[in-house]
Structure formats: C-alpha cells, structure tokens
Design a protein around this nucleic acid. Structure first.
Length: 454
RNA sequence: GGCGACGAUGCCAAGUGGUCUAAGGCGCAGGUCUGCAAAACCUCUAUUCGGCGGUUCGAAUCCGCCCGUCGCCUCCA
C-alpha cells in the first residue's frame, strides 16, 4: 500500500523492515477527558492497523501515556487530588471510550512515570555524546549539534527564530534548545537523577518508550498534525542522536485535525466536544463513518448535522444485515466491490472511497435480495470489509431498559398483529404511534413486525 | 514575518492531465412496495470544480497572479 510520509512529503510504498510492523502512536496527556479530536486520530490509526493486519501483517502497536507534565500537576492542584490519581482516572476513561469506539487495544501502554530509569539513561547518554547539557538541575538538548534538526517539520533554526516567538530560557545555549529534564519546583512530583530531583520534559518519554518497546527503528510513528513540531521533530532528534541510527522512523503518518467551526478543536481553546457526550448521542459506527468519510490528512469540521446524517448512513448499513438469502449459482458476486475497497485503502488509506464501495455493495445486496438472488456471501464480505474500518453493524444496546421492556413490547406487537388481521387499523395504528412516542419504532415486514429503539 | 493546506451541487465529501456531462453519504422531489406507515428499491438533484490569465490537441486536475478560509511556528490527537 502507499502511505504518505510526512518527512518526504510523498506517497511511498509501505514495506516494513521485519515481518512484524512496528507502530508507535502518540497517546494522550491524561489531564482532561478525551474529546472528539482524540477519537478521530485514534480511529484513523486503528483503521491503519486493522488494514495492515487484514493484509497479513502482525502489528506491534505501542501507545504511550504522558502521565507527568505541567498541565497534570496544575489540574491536580486545582482539583485537590494528587497527579497520579488524576492521570489514572483519565487513563481509565480513555480506555473505556476507546473500547466503546471499537478501537483495538495497543499491545503495550507504557507510562512516562514508569520509565524514569530508562529516561535518565537516555539523557545521560545524550550528555555524554554532547547532544545535551545540564544547567542548574535542568537538562537541555543542543539543537545545533544535531545536523539535520528541522528535517521532519521542514524548517530551519534560522526560520524558526525569525518567528520570534521562541523563549530565550535562562541558561539555554540556543533559543531552540529544548528541555529533556526539568528541575523540580516545590510541591511537584519528582524523581532523583544525576542532575538533582526533577521530572522528564515532554518528548523524551516517547524516545525512551519507543526504544524500549519497539527498538531503534520504527516502521510507523503516528499522531496528529499538531505534533509534527515540536514534539516529533524533537523526538526524532533525540532518538537518532542517542542511537546514532537513521532513520528513527521510516514512515511518519499524521492526521489532519478536527475543526470546531472556524478553529481546531483543542483543550487550550476550550471548544471541545467530549467523546463521552458524543458516544451517548451517536453510535460508534456513525462516529467512525463520520471520521472516515473524509480523508485522514484533511481537516474535518465537527457538526451535529454531519453526525446525524452519518447516523442514518450507519443505520442503512445495519439494515442490510437484517435478512438474508442463501448463496447459490446466480448469487451476487461481491468481488468487484472488494477490489474497489482494497484499491482505495492501498492508496494512502482512502477511506472515503473505501466507504463508497461499501455503500454501493450495500445497495446491490438490497437489490439482489429483493429479486431473490443469494446474498449471504456478499453480506459476509460487507461485514468483513466493514470490519477493517472497525464497523460493527450493531446498534448500541440501550443500557438497562432493553431486556426488561422486551416482553411487554413483544406482547403489544402481537396484539397489534391480531388487530391488523381483524382489519382494525385505527387501533393498530394507535398502538404503533403510541409506541413511537415512547421511542419504539415498529416496522412491518413479510417476516413479521420488527421493532427497535429510535 | 516564515512554512504549509484548502476553496466543488442544498449540506458533508472523493477525484489531481483525457474513461469527469465529477464517487459516495445526508437532504429534497417523483415513483414502486405497503391497509397506512416504516424499511428497501427505482428515477431525479453540479455540462460544472473560488476569480482572472497561461501551458496543452485536451485542465477540476499543471503554472502565475488575485480573493477568501484555515493550520503549524507556543501546550495540543
């Protein structure tokens, strides 16, 4: 398959180094609930992983938690809890939400706070190799020592300084030098180190963790576009300086950002829709179709109208799975649709086109079913390919009521069936419309009356 | 200021030199089916791709300029 590589700016044929694909996806800093932007990014990388697995690769997927940082400390103080507790709570929420979204679990979820010795080891080695220097308890990375600094984000030190928004930190040799180890201030969580008590800076944890769990060369490193600079730039600088090996990452994959009206959705702008709220309102399939309906590198704008439209689209796909006719000699052949799907996915994960193929297949199945053609094989194909996009074709079960109300609803339906048989349509229609008001939708089919919650 | 992206039908959104009178989804309208609905299916909904020039036998697709919107350069998926 072709994948767009941020560092070269081109589509490249994806070939992993070994027989297993090493994929590292930047995780969250767990100081606040996840929002739709996170969901979008992780759904995209979930689809990339599922597609690679579909193609027969084994994927070693690692996703970190940066569970110590300024924001966590600050938020914990505001809430009067300790930082670990706050982080733990949001990590748990994250895992629950990802499960609800049908995002496959990474093999390992390392946490910054649990890799401190390794982080210290990497920093020490960078100092030894003169890629880093300590100043009063802080340690900085020396960007001027790294010849190709800026290669990922395609910028130069001069260009960045011209931006004039860089902070000339006390003790920094160069304004762009960034911190590897932060000396502890009073009341902050800290660990002992050769440079005094402190904690890791942002970026270094990913270097330490990816080296630890995947080795010196990653096949794929992913994250949002907003991580390219400074996070991934710094990460690659550190990693390659530490190992002496290039490239640290063979394919850099970045997704476009979710916009909220005019701006991007982000914690700092406070214009977010929490994933939890969205999951309460829309099915996981609908959310996924919404994200995958535009190409992963394009920005996508959140909208209620868009989501409700996608919910109806998801419902259509579900309906295709309701009935079936056994495959026979003149059955619907799903192969052309499968080929279209694969071709789309091979072309830098073109999920909008892949989805288009699935919707066309869905229509053909409905059509064939009406004309009595066999469709069970085609349905299996649809389910399997949809599965590559992480679609379940299930409507989420309403929490409690479903089971309890079922016998009563079934009873009403059977009475209504009798009324209809007796041609008492007024009464029958009344049952249907009263149930509708209660959120239960009836549908009369040749096989009997089906019902579902709205 | 530097780097980059985008501008398409009522809305969302693929396509990046001819097969495009532009995929797919949602919506709208008409029809089939149905006791009526619902679901499903059929038909319909951009001769046109921000504007102006240019390259080419040929451009939504390449180049230039202009207008508009956005992202990164600072914490961020």
């Amino acid at each position: 398959m072709k994948l767009y590589n941020t560092i070269t700016g081109r589509d490249e044929e994806f070939v992993p180094v070994g027989d297993k694909v090493k994929m590292y996806v930047c995780g969250i800093t767990p100081y606040a609930p996840c929002h739709m932007g996170h969901a979008m990014s992780y759904v995209i990388f979930d689809v990339l992983r599922r597609y690679l697995e579909f193609q027969g690769y084994e994927v070693e997927h690692v996703q970190n938690f940066t569970d110590v940082d300024d924001k966590i400390i600050q938020r914990a103080q505001e809430e009067g809890v300790c930082p670990q507790e706050l982080a733990e709570r949001h990590i748990q929420e994250f895992m629950d939400s990802m499960g609800a979204l049908n995002v496959k679990s990474a093999g390992v979820y390392p946490r910054a706070t649990q890799e401190i010795p390794h982080i210290i080891e990497v920093i020490s080695s960078l100092i030894e190799k003169e890629y880093a220097y300590a100043v009063e308890g802080d340690v900085y990375f020396r960007v001027t020592k790294d010849r190709d600094y800026g290669k990922l984000s395609h910028r130069t030190l001069e260009g960045m300084i011209a931006g004039a928004r860089v902070e000339v930190g006390a003790g920094k040799e160069h304004p762009m030098d960034f911190v590897l180890w932060k000396a502890a201030k009073k009341g902050e969580p800290s660990w002992e180190s050769p440079w005094g008590p402190g904690r890791p800076g942002w970026h270094i944890e990913c270097t330490a963790m990816s080296l630890m769990y995947l080795g010196e060369t990653l096949d794929i490193h992913g994250g949002g576009l907003d991580l390219i600079f400074p996070h991934h730039e710094n990460e690659t600088a550190q990693s390659e300086s530490y190992t002496g090996k290039t490239p640290f990452v063979r394919y850099w994959v970045h997704n476009g950002l979710l916009q909220m009206g005019e701006d991007k959705m982000s914690k700092s702008l406070g214009n977010l829709v929490s994933l939890e709220d969205a999951l309460n309102q829309y099915s996981p399939d609908a959310l996924r179709i919404f994200f995958l309906g535009s190409h992963y590198r394009s920005p996508l704008t959140y909208s209620e109208e868009g989501l409700s439209a996608t919910e109806r689209a998801a419902e259509r796909l579900r309906n295709v799975m309701r009935g079936s006719t056994e495959s026979s000699a003149d059955s619907l052949d799903p192969l052309p649709y499968k080929q279209r799907f694969l071709q789309a996915m091979d072309s830098d994960l073109n999920t909008p086109q892949a989805l288009a193929a699935l919707f066309d297949l869905a229509r053909e199945i409905n059509r064939a079913m009406e004309s009595g053609q066999g469709v069970s094989q085609a349905q299996k194909t649809l389910e399997k390919l949809g599965g590559v996009l992480g679609l379940t074709f299930h409507r989420p079960q309403k929490k409690s009521a479903e089971g309890e109300a079922k016998p009563f609803i079934d009873l009403l339906i059977s009475m209504r069936t009798d009324l209809r048989a007796a041609r008492q349509y007024d009464m029958a229609d009344q049952v249907r419309s009263r149930l509708d008001e209660l959120g239960v939708v009836l549908e009369d089919t040749p096989q009997g009356t089906l019902w579902k919650y709205k």
